[in-house]
Amino acid sequence: MSVAIIDYGSGNLHSAHKAFERATSESGIGGDIIVTSDPELVRTADRIVLPGVGAYADCRRGLDAVPGMVEAMTEAVQDKGRPFLGICVGMQLLADRGLEHLTTPGLGWIGGDVVEIVPDDRSLKIPHMGWNTLDQGQEHALLAGIPTGADGWHAYFVHSFHLRPSTPDTVVATTNYGGKITALVAKGTVAGTQFHPEKSQKLGLALIANFLRWRP
């Protein structure tokens, strides 16, 4: 199996690369993990990962700056049905629009906008930074074998904005931080995590292994 982690000048690619390598070897799935900015390798990969940290508009600009990348991603996902995982801002880019500072168009693969977190309790700190549990709204292969709920495993979050989907059916899991925060979305062969699986120790490695096994 080949997994392409898209390099567009954003994201902790080193960590993501190593976490995917660890998950492929520990799970016995095997495969080649490549970090690439070559659209051709993305087009032909069995699995595609879009990481992303920083500001929404910067990430979008970075992605657009790689000639042919958005087209290659779109072709792989929409024509070939390849499983795709967005991480953090990479997940937010799946939305219709990002409303961080200015309005930036997203990929429009998951309906909704990326909006500022406004906790009910205004004394809560922003960014939402640290370890939080997941509340699962629906069954999904990416969460197979991962305990969720208040006593479940933890995922590592660091963000000030989150994806507010236009329809609830794309939300697989939320987390609570002065209200519901979207944690995991999925639609067809596309999924995205607001948290960082590559930094989430055992939950992260289990989710990555699930993504590698996923046959949507």
Partner: peptide, 11 residues
């Protein structure tokens, strides 16, 4: 830093 990031999946 690089070797740590390869071995530890935590922030």
């Amino acid at each position: 830093v690089s070797r740590t990031a390869e071995a530890c999946f935590m922030p």
